[in-house]
Nucleic acid binder design. Structure first.
Lengths: 136, 136
DNA sequence: CCAACTATTACGATGCGTGACCGTCT
DNA sequence: TAGACGGTCACGCATCGTAATAGTTG
C-alpha cells in the first residue's frame, strides 16, 4: 500500500516550522524526508512529520540539534529492535535523555518564573509612576 | 558618600554572566560600568549590577539586545524626567515594552507546557516498553 | 613584591537559523 | 502560468575560545 506523502509546504504548516528550518533540519541530518519526486521535491510521510513535531515540541528543553538527533535515532532503533538485551541498552539511553530533558525543562521553568516576576516588578513600578506624581 | 563598587569578576559571578558577556554588553551599549579605576579597571556600582540582573532575568522573553537597551534607556530616563508630558510619553513606551514582554513570556510558557507534555508521553511509552516485552 | 585580576585587540568558531538569488517543477 | 520548490552561499545574533601582550590591584 502506498503511503500518503506531503510536500514540504504542507509539512511546514503542519509543524509550524518554516520551510527553511525544515530543510535545515534535513541538512544537519535531523529529519530527512522518506522520499523525493522525480523532479526532486521532498516527500514526507506521516512518521516524518511526527519526528518533526517531536523535535519541535522538545525544543524548549534547549538541546543542541545533535542531541535531538541522537534521541530520535535511539527511539527509532527501539521500534525495530528484537534482541531484548539491545533493547534494554537503548531504553537506558532513552531514559537518560528523558531525565536530562526533564531537568532542563525544570530549569527553563525556573527562569521563566524569575522573568515573570521581574516583569511584574516593572509593571508595578510603572503603575505607581503614572497616577501619583508626588506619592511619598 | 562613596559608593561601593565591584570589579568585573565580582559582577560576573553575582550575575551568572561570563566576563566575556559582561564586556560584550558594554560594547553594544547595553550596560556600562559607572566608572573606572585609574588603571582602567571597570567599576560597577550596585545599580549597574541591577541592570545586568534585569537584563538577565528578562532574557527568557527573548528580546534582541537592542530592544533591551531601549527598555533600559526608557526606564532610566523616566527616573529623572520632571516634565509630566515627557514622562507620560516614556511611560507609554515602557508600557508597550512590558506588554510585549508579557506576550512573549506567555508564549514561552505555552511552549514549555507543551514540551513537558510531550516529555510525559515519551516517558510513558518508555515505561510501557521495558517491563512487558510482548504486551498486546 | 607577588599572585590574581584585568585591559585591549583580534580573529575565529559555534548554534540555529534567515535571506536572497535564480533556476526548475507541478 | 503562478506559485511552490530546488540548491547554494552568505549573513546575523549572541555568545564563547583563546591568544598575545601588558598593566593593575590588594
Amino acid at each position: 500500500m502506498a503511503q500518503e506523502t506531503f510536500h514540504i509546504g504542507d509539512v511546514a504548516s503542519r509543524t509550524g516550522l518554516s520551510l527553511r528550518t525544515v530543510r535545515y533540519y534535513e541538512s544537519v541530518g535531523l529529519v530527512a524526508p522518506s522520499g523525493r519526486t522525480e523532479g526532486g521535491f521532498r516527500l514526507y510521510t506521516e512518521p516524518d512529520v511526527r519526528r518533526l513535531l517531536l523535535v519541535r515540541s522538545l525544543k524548549p528543553a534547549d538541546f543542541p540539534l545533535e542531541d535531538l538527533q541522537a534521541l530520535l535515532e535511539t527511539h527509532d532503533r527501539l521500534l525495530e529492535e528484537p534482541d531484548p538485551d539491545v533493547r534494554r541498552a537503548l531504553e537506558g539511553r532513552l531514559a537518560g535523555f528523558l531525565g536530562l530533558a526533564r531537568e532542563r525543562l525544570r530549569l527553563q521553568r525556573e527562569r521563566l518564573v524569575a522573568s515573570e516576576l521581574a516583569l511584574e516588578v516593572l509593571e508595578g513600578a510603572l503603575a505607581r509612576s503614572t497616577p501619583a506624581e508626588k506619592a511619598p
